[in-house]
Design a protein around this nucleic acid. Structure first.
Lengths: 232, 232
DNA sequence: GTCTATAGACGGATAGAC
DNA sequence: GTCTATCCGTCTATAGAC
């Protein structure tokens, strides 16, 4: 479809464009980032982006594809490992949460190869209105979500599935803001100084697990705690 | 500055433009929403938006201003009420969280007068890259955040302030996704059916409080629980 | 694979009649 | 207050030389 080059040569222009686009998208958003901004930031010609990717939408898709496919592969690998070790026993919810969100935070901690930039972009994009992007994200996430939600359903058999689904959704929101916050907490002016990414992981993890294991609201019967008692 | 009409007459065109802009912004984003889309959706002329607001940025600012100022006023009023009732005693964290996030969720539950639309927009906007919007948001939130964070610091004297700040940030992320999710959880295709806004409030509240009261991560000393034991 | 030049559409904003 | 007509800038995408 795209007249792109064959896979192996990897002319560096293509990657420079992807890197520049990633940074500009997170800074200005998709619509506000023009092809000209991208190519001039990448030191490439305006026509190069069309040669390598065809259209702007295809470029956006490739910015996500090159990282998201790998991230979700790692997530599934981590879950596979847990399930292999458990040999049929139900998993601890905390391990499932770590496999999903911890893997993402590790990528976000990589500031040298653009992982951090990408994770900020990903957090923003979950609520992105662009229809093309939404459709693409849904496809990329379908399998991972199914696997992880299934694992949580098994790990917390007493909790209604709707509740787990919602709480997973809440957790994704917290993670998204956690990653964005490393840069954007200037909103909370002054007093904020401790943005050490090393500390972000345990901070977020204890919050997520606290939320996941919170007692269910009054009108629902039963409580979450039965399913997971470790670090209590 | 703006050649707008005097405050009281309230010609309906102005409000129709604001309503149309609110809906289109949440659906397409600021950049992707053109003035022409707004005016044609509002049944107004392209020149009307300039007459009433001057520039597109000023229109955006007014879309937020008319709702956010009122929301934050209600939040502060709720906090004032709590503090007056407590007569100097420290507040329960759960009440503080309710005053901040519950007030927002109530607005989000109003689907008839655009409150729901606005809250979706607000959630998206917290991570909005547009510099103008960011600056405006920071100003609108400054006082509320200072008051609520101060209340939480007093309510949880044993918890490091950085930790409270981060957890408040995480809570905002969860709330943002909670509100967006009422519509956009189609990402989690199929199995998702229970989007009853009546149930969202208790769902989110128990998650938020579970996260806020979670034990602190290992390398930090002390635990959160000492500060708030009610619903345990 | 990279460039210049340009087509063709759409953006925000405004002038000036009514 | 509302309209039509228009200025002028920027956008994506492409054609075609090198």
């Amino acid at each position: 479809m795209t007249p792109g080059p064959s896979r192996s040569p990897a002319p560096e222009t293509r990657d420079r464009i992807l890197d520049a686009a990633e940074g500009l998208f997170v800074e200005h958003g998709f619509e506000a980032t023009s092809m000209r901004m991208i190519t001039s930031s990448a030191g490439a010609n305006i026509a190069a982006v069309n040669y390598h990717f065809g259209t702007k939408d295809a470029l956006i898709q490739e910015v996500f594809g090159r990282r998201l496919t790998e991230l979700n592969r790692q997530r599934l690998a981590a879950l596979d490992r847990l399930q292999a070790e458990a040999k049929g026993e139900p998993l601890k919810p905390s391990r499932i949460v770590e496999a999903f969100f911890g893997t993402a935070l590790e990528l976000a901690a990589d500031t040298e190869h653009g992982g951090h930039t990408f994770m900020r972009l990903l957090g923003r994009t979950y609520t992105e209105p662009n229809a093309f992007v939404r459709k693409f994200m849904a496809e990329e996430y379908a399998e991972v979500l199914e696997r992880f939600l299934g694992a949580l359903y098994s790990a917390l058999p007493d909790v209604p599935r709707e509740e787990i689904l919602w709480r997973f959704h809440f957790m994704m929101g917290a993670m998204s803001y956690a990653i964005a916050g490393t840069d954007s907490l200037q909103l909370f002016a002054g007093s904020f100084d401790d943005a050490d990414p090393q500390r972000l992981m345990p901070r977020l993890m204890s919050f997520l697990l606290g939320g996941l294991r919170a007692p269910l609201a009054e009108f629902a019967q039963g409580a979450v705690q039965g399913g997971d008692r470790e670090a209590a």
